[in-house]
């Protein structure tokens, strides 16, 4: 791997976005940053992980936070900014990586090597995946998907100008139910390879 590559993967809950991101990272032999991002940040800052847990990808609660001269008291917002700083620093140092969510398509957009993807899926596929993965009933899975997507949407939209899932914010939006996860990944690899030749 000679030239820098950053792949940002936004995803709907249950769409298989994480698996696709993992496969892309494996294919290009680059680091995957998803839930482990918190551990990375804690390690980088020499902090204990439990101080940072429970706040990830959550929007700030306006009623319980205040902003003074650009400083926010919101733990959720501060953790998000901490992660954004970490990602930007990592990118500026020339590292290649795949990052899942974390408004990465927005905060890393100044890097020319960024390829941003949003993975969505049909409702039925998402339900099946979530029911199998989390051993849930249909009604529970539906509720869980709705809540998680709403959480991600609120988190994303509170930090970014563009809306979560809006195809105009990403280089490519893809429905993973149409080709399945493996073929979708293959298609994305072809797209990424072409992009890198440009």
């Amino acid at each position: 791997m000679t030239s820098q590559l950053i792949i940002s993967v936004g995803r709907e809950f249950g769409s298989g976005g994480h698996e696709i991101a993992k496969d892309l990272a494996e294919h290009y032999q680059i680091e995957l940053l998803d839930s482990n991002l918190l551990t990375e940040v804690a390690k980088h800052k020499e902090l204990e992980l439990h101080h940072l847990e429970g706040l990830e990808e959550k929007r700030k609660i306006k009623l319980f936070s205040r902003t003074v001269r650009g400083f926010s008291s919101s733990p959720e917002e501060n953790l998000a900014l901490l992660q954004f700083d970490y990602l930007q620093k990592k990118a500026a140092e020339g590292n290649s990586f795949v990052v899942v969510g974390r408004c990465s398509e927005n905060i890393l957009r100044k890097f020319k090597c960024l390829i941003s993807i949003f993975v969505l899926a049909d409702r039925k596929c998402k339900m099946e995946r979530v029911m199998k993965l989390y051993e849930m009933s249909e009604s529970m899975a539906e509720k869980y998907i709705r809540e998680r997507d709403m959480e991600r949407k609120r988190y994303h939209n509170s930090f970014c100008e563009g809306k979560w899932g809006d195809s105009r914010n990403y280089d490519l939006s893809v429905n993973s139910s149409k080709l399945g996860l493996d073929e979708t990944t293959e298609m994305l690899i072809e797209y990424i390879d072409r992009r890198r030749k440009k």
């Binding site: 800052k45 902090l47 940072l52 205040r66 001269r69 501060n78 900014l81």
Partner: peptide, 24 residues
């Protein structure tokens, strides 16, 4: 509370941005 006075907000935010997150 963390939101009661400007100094609290700035103190909590400055610490949190360095990873020392101060929750309610």
């Amino acid at each position: 509370t963390p939101i009661g006075a400007s100094a609290n907000v700035v103190g909590v935010a400055t610490a949190s941005r360095e990873g020392y997150i101060i929750r309610w």
